[in-house]
Design a protein around this nucleic acid. Structure first.
Lengths: 345, 345
DNA sequence: CTTAGCACTCTGCGGATGAGAGTGCCAGCT
DNA sequence: AGCTGGCACTCTCATCCGCAGAGTGCTAAG
């Protein structure tokens, strides 16, 4: 896309200044302000020419003739793409991150929950995360538990995930039949989720009908835990921040935003769409869903070693402090990766 | 408290009409409207006298001299306490409830989650629930699972709850020591959560220091699952409804409301405070927290047989359709009780 | 005790006005 | 050619005014 050179040095500076000023104040920015604070030794008339050009190019817009300019989604995009520096965190923020990761890490799921809240506090937006899927994780337990009229399938993964599902217990099953099924499942311990799942489907073809159904249901429990190689649920935290007065959303937009944040499948899709190999920013209409919200998403993957585990990030208004949001997300994702890597030895 | 007789028949009718009209329209209600729709064969001047008296008594208030009246929290309270009839559900609502409880119920936790969403859809407010605690539930599994550098304590209850916690695995433990601890825990299967917890504390006194610590930690896992005889977490759903344009909350109030809804411990406390033996209504300033939100809570307990399991209800604005909210909460709590009772056989 | 009537109060709205912010453009300067 | 000062122009926003409308509170009469 357009880079700094393509746009011309001065236009880029003007655009950056407008973005930063608008994000800071929430007010449309006028040429006078840029002339004063932009650090270009140039009059407001010159700035006005540049601004008209930037508007022509689609980077700025005009609420009305005699107001200042505000950035369009494309304007924010250019700003983000040409940021000359990585954002630096303030000391308080750095400390908050350090103290959050100071304790010995035992349960990644717990840490992830905490990290979502941490990010929401750091940025004053809402935190989101997609936890690791289980496809390649080893099963350390796969049990069938008799619970009277029902039975529970319980799967425990090497890294601490626990999936359960309660099923009908076929009435005519003898204790003997139950134990047989139990043993079959137990035999899969030590394999991966996806491996066991495949094996179960295989196995199902070779057994009588009622046991057949059971094995398929267990396979389904494993499938749900590994769906699309990612988790089945999304963590969301700090949504109250989005209701802050300082945010410019109309009620109706806010409502739709909250609605979607509650729908896990939809959020999962959105976060999947925006995921990238590094810190990624999706601004307003760049994605249909964020467009509907008039919001932006900043995410980063976290890894154990070289393997992507999941995604963590924030959701906020398009009028966002991208520099600091990106810095926070990057920092938390990095610490999280360190923690996860260590946890895998 | 004040009942219909105490207030006088006509005042009560006037108050009821004002509450219903105000809830319906959101506009302060004038004497003319009551004279027309109240069904009292009486002029607006008479109504005005009654209204002045009701204001004197603290049931109504006045935004300004020449606006109509709106109910105070005490006005809503009187209204709710003297409702002559139980609200009836509309057919769509009845159908929605029926279809939600139509499927065979296997997992109470899942059903409860669904019920919270159901209530939020029925009422257009936010649904909340406190799931059952585990104190008297039997443990069907209590396992210690070796996960390399860590270990997992896994507890499974008779009714399908699963609690897990990951702990540090003492480095110097031999496989032998691990198995010993494992066996000790397994021996507790079949007992209740609270029983096992007590037993563990006893046992801990009789063993060497490292095993001692472990047993205490396991006891703590059980304690967390049974804290205060209730669950440790709260389910919340449909909060987007609260951001609806029709609601009158200011942004700041809305923000505080969302903030608290996210804080499980605080919500748990509030729901504990407002809980009663039947459908219970808490209006605005009657509880400090709901006062801060300018909101009301309607809850009802759900039971298995005669035993209270938990609480389910809704959170909405003080300007709430109490009649229909109470009917919805009552109906869902009843179905839930039936389902839970059946599940226990 | 009720009611019609009426003066009174307060809000909300439309229109007028003026200040202020900011633009766009032009003509002259470097 | 690019920059700049100057200036007319536009649009918003706050304020004020006046007025219609809603609703009250009170009084005097039934």
């Amino acid at each position: 896309m357009a880079d700094r050179g393509e746009l011309g040095q001065r236009k880029a500076v003007v655009l950056h200044t407008i973005v930063e000023e608008y994000v800071r104040t929430g007010e449309p920015v006028g040429s006078e302000t840029i002339a004063e604070r932009g650090g270009l030794g140039v009059s407001s008339a010159t700035i006005r020419n540049e601004m008209a050009a930037l508007e022509e190019l689609g980077f700025l817009s005009h609420p009305h003739t005699s107001a200042g300019r505000i950035p369009t989604d494309a304007g924010y995009r250019h700003y983000v793409d040409t940021l000359p520096v990585r954002g630096r965190l303030r000391d308080v923020q750095r400390k908050a991150i350090a103290s959050h990761f100071a304790e010995a890490i035992l349960d990644l799921e717990e840490v992830l929950k905490g990290s979502v809240m941490l990010l929401s506090r750091l940025t004053q937006y809402a935190g989101v995360a997609v936890p690791p899927g289980a496809a390649e994780e080893q099963l350390v337990r796969l049990e069938l538990i008799d619970m009277g009229p029902t039975m529970m399938v319980l799967a425990v993964g090497q890294h601490g995930r626990v999936d359960k599902q309660i099923l009908d217990r076929p009435e005519h099953w003898s204790t003997e039949a139950f134990h047989r099924a139990e043993r079959k499942l137990r035999a899969l311990q030590g394999q991966t989720y996806s491996g066991s799942q495949a094996k179960l489907l295989e196995l199902a073809a070779t057994v009588p009908a009622d046991e057949h159904d059971l094995l398929l249901m267990v396979a389904d429990v494993l499938r749900l835990a590994t769906r699309g190689d990612h988790a089945t649920h999304v963590m969301v935290g700090g949504v109250a921040n989005l209701a802050d007065e300082a945010q410019t959303w109309r009620r109706e937009t806010l409502r739709r935003l909250f609605e979607t944040l509650e729908r896990e499948q939809e959020m999962l899709q959105v976060l999947h769409d925006v995921a990238a190999d590094d810190v990624s920013v999706t601004i307003g209409a760049e994605h249909p869903t964020t467009g509907e919200w008039e919001a932006s998403i900043v995410t980063a993957p976290f890894r154990a070693g070289e393997v992507n585990l999941g995604t963590i990030g924030i959701v906020g208004p398009t009028r966002m402090d991208y520099l600091s949001a990106m810095a926070s997300v990057r920092a938390v994702a990095e610490r999280l990766s360190e923690a996860a890597t260590e946890l895998e030895q």
